[in-house]
Each structure stands twice: as structure tokens, then as C-alpha cells.
């Protein structure tokens, strides 16, 4: 049996289904992200693990102990809130030591742990400051240390970085990963930022409208999405209407031009079949053994590392991302364009 197991968990708030039939097995030391749009039930699921919400049905088992109905203060799981939630009346050191203090841990032991935690988050110099004297990023690091100080069985983070600005966000993200790996702590991380989920996690749970859409490693989620929702929520995706789909031989027609696609995974054809392909799979020009399509450039956006084009092929607009090169001549709006892509990069949805 896995370390943390969430089985058939549902939560209904007065008629609103917030979480439906959630099932997840988490191994010890794993870093799991819950990824999904606003209101899909990420926080609710996390709060059920923390004990702040009781499941309407199902159970949560941690380390072979059924904690479904255990009160939050007896679970020994650490939680980091989006809004930091530091106690404003306590110094950094007191905040970090709070969990040990209420456990009546001896003072010298508290001191040792607090010092260790301060070192871990690189805030040794700020031990005696009050939260209002710290920046948002520093406060969130303290909140992390406070949650870790009690040596929790699971660390839960609810969008811990979303109140911070972009640069700090990336910095702290790496910080969290470093600390998590160093301590080997089982972690569940809630976010609606796919980049965070992809870069941090061992596995990602993609959620939508209270249901799990797909569970998998970042590359599985990105490269082999099983539902249209996952495919379009994680990363950019072109969904191009096609006709004359032949699933057996993996061929179809896109605006009259023949396209071969990956038919190794079993798929069902809907009545409006579409070809799915990510923008970064395209290249410019002719190429042997690849799909070729012809159109003309309608939009050119230079984004630095990437040049994003919109190419019109008959009725449809296709997003094409090209990697920037120093000597590249940028296509111009109105140019005729031939783009190519490998058959294994696209599939039918």
C-alpha cells in the first residue's frame, strides 16, 4: 500500500459538487502537483487531506492510518497557504517554533530546530523580525519553514507562489524543490500554473470541474495527454479540423492536403475529428518524410527565444513556434509558407 492514499473521495458543498471520486496513491517522498483551472477543486482536495474539510464520501489513509475524520491538529501534516498566514504577533523565530511549542517540546530542542530551519531558508539574519518587516517572498519562506519544523508526514502547499512577482516566483520554486528533495518529504502542491507543475513534480494530477482528468509524469501529461482538456490546458495545442480520417493507416486530409498522423495509441473518432499538434513541432521549409502543408503567414510575434507565427491554411489558423536563431530571417506577414512536421508529433482527437 502506498504512503498516502486517497480513495473515492467526493465533496459536495450544499449541492455544489466540488470534488468527485478522487483517487490517488502517493509514494513516500513523491512530489505531486494538482493542476487545474480556478474552481476545479484543488484546494478542496488539499483541505480534505489537511482536515479542514470532511469528505462527503471516501477516505484518506496516511501511513496506514485512516485520517479521514481526524481533526487537523492531530494529523501532523504541514500546510503552506497562498496568503502566507504568518502569525503577525510573533517574530520569525517564534513563528517557526510555534508548532513545536504547542507540542511542549523542550526549549533547547525548539531552538535547535528553529536555527536549522532558518539556515534552510537562508533567513538567519531575520530571526527576530516581525512578519510585516519581511517581503512577500521572505514571508512565504518562513511559512514553509514553519510547516517543516514540525517534521510533518506530508507537506501541503496551496498556490504558495501566486501572490509573488514573477522573478521571486521562479526563485522560490527552485528553493521549494531543493528543500523538498533534501528533506525527502512527501509533497502535494496545488497550482494553476502549468510551468510550476511541469518543472517541480514527479507526477501531476490534472483536474477539471471536480474530476481528475489525468495523472502522470510531466512528460506523459505534456506529450501524451489522454483528454482534450489536458491537451489544451497544458501547453499550447493546435486543434485543426480534418476530413477523410483513416485511423487504420493513420492518414487524413487537412484542407485538402494529405497528412499522416500517429495512430499507435487507440483513439476514437468523434463526428468532428481534429488533428492535434503542438506549435513547437513545426519547422519551416520542405523536408523528406514529413508532413508538409502550405499556407501564408498572417501574424508574426517575436518573443525572444521563440518566434510565434500564425499561418493560415485555407479556413484554419495554425500556431507555429520557431526557435529563434541569430541569423534567422523572420518571415513577413503575407509571405507564402511551407511548414513541415513529423507524423509522430500529431494525433487525432
Amino acid at each position: 500500500m502506498s504512503y498516502l492514499s486517497i480513495s473515492n473521495v467526493s465533496k459536495i458543498f450544499g449541492g455544489v459538487v466540488a470534488v468527485e471520486d478522487f483517487n490517488l496513491e502517493v509514494e513516500k517522498g513523491e512530489f505531486i502537483s494538482f493542476l487545474g483551472p480556478s474552481g476545479c477543486g484543488k484546494t478542496t482536495t488539499l483541505r480534505m487531506i489537511a482536515g479542514f474539510e470532511l469528505p462527503t464520501s471516501g477516505e484518506v489513509v496516511l501511513d496506514s492510518e485512516n485520517i479521514t475524520y481526524k481533526s487537523p491538529n492531530e494529523r501532523n501534516v504541514g500546510m503552506v497557504f497562498q496568503s502566507y498566514a504568518l502569525f503577525p504577533n510573533m517574530t520569525v523565530a517564534q513563528n517557526i517554533g510555534f508548532g513545536l511549542q504547542v507540542r511542549k517540546t523542550p526549549a533547547d530542542e525548539i531552538q535547535t530546530t528553529v536555527k536549522e530551519m532558518l539556515g534552510l531558508i537562508h533567513l538567519e539574519k531575520h530571526a527576530e523580525k516581525y512578519p510585516y518587516q519581511l517581503s512577500g517572498g521572505q514571508q512565504q519562506r518562513v511559512a514553509l519553514a514553519r510547516a517543516l519544523a514540525i517534521n510533518p508526514r506530508v507537506l501541503l502547499l496551496d498556490e504558495p507562489l501566486s501572490a509573488l512577482d514573477a522573478k521571486i516566483r521562479v526563485e522560490l520554486r527552485q528553493e521549494i524543490r531543493r528543500i523538498q528533495q533534501k528533506m525527502g518529504i512527501t509533497t502535494i502542491y496545488v497550482t494553476h500554473d502549468q510551468e510550476e507543475a511541469l518543472s517541480l513534480s514527479n507526477r501531476i494530477v490534472v483536474m477539471s470541474q471536480g474530476r481528475m482528468e489525468q495523472v502522470g509524469t510531466p512528460s506523459e501529461i505534456y506529450n501524451h495527454p489522454t483528454t482534450e482538456f489536458v491537451a489544451s490546458f497544458v501547453g499550447q495545442l493546435n486543434l485543426l479540423p480534418v476530413s477523410e480520417v483513416d485511423l487504420k493507416n493513420g492518414v487524413c486530409k487537412l484542407n485538402g492536403q494529405l497528412v499522416r498522423f500517429d495512430h499507435s495509441e487507440p483513439r476514437q473518432i468523434s463526428d468532428k475529428p481534429r488533428l492535434a499538434i503542438r506549435p513547437e513541432e513545426f519547422q519551416f521549409g520542405q523536408a523528406e518524410g514529413r508532413n508538409l502543408i502550405q499556407g501564408h503567414v498572417e501574424v508574426v510575434m517575436f518573443l525572444g527565444a521563440v518566434v510565434r507565427l500564425r499561418v493560415r491554411i485555407g479556413e484554419v489558423l495554425v500556431s507555429v513556434d520557431l526557435f529563434n536563431e541569430r541569423n534567422m530571417t523572420l518571415p513577413r506577414v503575407g509571405d507564402e509558407a511551407v511548414v513541415n512536421f513529423p507524423p509522430h508529433a500529431c494525433w487525432i482527437m
Binding site: A50, P72, N89, V102
Partner: peptide, 23 residues
């Protein structure tokens, strides 16, 4: 009084009494 303060305290193992007296 923010709800998160209470929840953070509980999460860290504090009883209701400890939350009131210390936070």
C-alpha cells in the same frame, strides 16, 4: 482575525485554547 491564522495554528498542532491564548 483571518481564517488562515486559525487554520495555520490548528495545522501546526495547536488546540483551540492555544490558538486563542497565543494568537
Amino acid at each position: 482575525l483571518r481564517r488562515e491564522w486559525r487554520e495555520a495554528a490548528e495545522n501546526l498542532g495547536a488546540t483551540s485554547f492555544q490558538y486563542w491564548t497565543r494568537v
